[in-house]
Design a protein around this nucleic acid. Sequence first.
DNA 1: CTTGATTCCATTGACGCCCATGAAATCCCA
DNA 2: TGGGATTTCATGGGCGTCAATGGAATCAAG
Lengths: 158, 158
Amino acid sequence: MDRFVSNFTNRLDAKGRVSIPASYRSVLARDGFDGLYVHPALDAPALDAGGNALLGEIDRLLSGLAPYSDERDLFATALLGTSDVLKIDGEGRVILTESFKAHAGIGDMVTFVGLGPKFQIWHPDRFNAHLADARARVGELRRRLGNRAVADNGGGMT
Amino acid sequence: MDRFVSNFTNRLDAKGRVSIPASYRSVLARDGFDGLYVHPALDAPALDAGGNALLGEIDRLLSGLAPYSDERDLFATALLGTSDVLKIDGEGRVILTESFKAHAGIGDMVTFVGLGPKFQIWHPDRFNAHLADARARVGELRRRLGNRAVADNGGGMT
DNA sequence: CTTGATTCCATTGACGCCCATGAAATCCCA
DNA sequence: TGGGATTTCATGGGCGTCAATGGAATCAAG
């Protein structure tokens, strides 16, 4: 598997360390990035994290915007300027900075959520709310699209 | 045969393991995916499962959405974030996660239902209810469409 | 010397992997 | 064609390994 999937909830210890899920670590290892690239999510109280694949997406996004344009500087600021590369210790753990924890409202538990080329880090409760919302909106979109574009049958059998 | 058909009801053992029906396993083997890709069904108390064929549908859907767009993160959250790749042991069994079991209301028996490129996993009773409902609706649809668009499966299973 | 951080080691519980059993389907040969 | 032999499957259990977590030890400074 070469992308982040599934979700995991882990505990921060007294020193603020938290284990990156093993399956994510193996994706990162394949990706080849040393450390963990993290930035605040653009429109959610969460963090986006990943490796080279994520950096590649950011590059593609920025290169599609006109140099010196306002949009480009804004995105660059949000995606690059507030990011950080976290060290991963021998046991596969990272320490989130205070500003990251503040942005995501993180206490002593976090939920990792795989989104393909990147994953997000949430406060568990906030993620549950976000997930319920995402499901509702996806369901609504499916209905509006007449059950076709979105994977899967409308309950019909065979 | 290169698709999932028929239905089977198997028991979970004390460790929560359940055998994937042998005929499904051979489909998965041909598909080439290592493990079993699973996510909660979007509009039913059931699980969608499969291999590359299923994953491909999701990829096609997501690749049509711009990286860092709102919809993409939403769909990725609902589809990838709640999915999991279950390991298949030497005997062809998987262990369902707690959240999967909760979503489908699964206890110690499950029903596998082949739907072509994917299959579903149900609580046996819920599946029977779903089946009765599906039959009724198919019958109604046939009547309304004058027996044409809904090409005649007599509702027969197996 | 004290405080904070980083590396190393220990624990525990879950999971992966291996082998065993019984029942049912298939095969095979008289 | 019938019935025994063989294979396939679903299921059960034991055990080693690994992951998540916690704490100790080492290091870096102020």
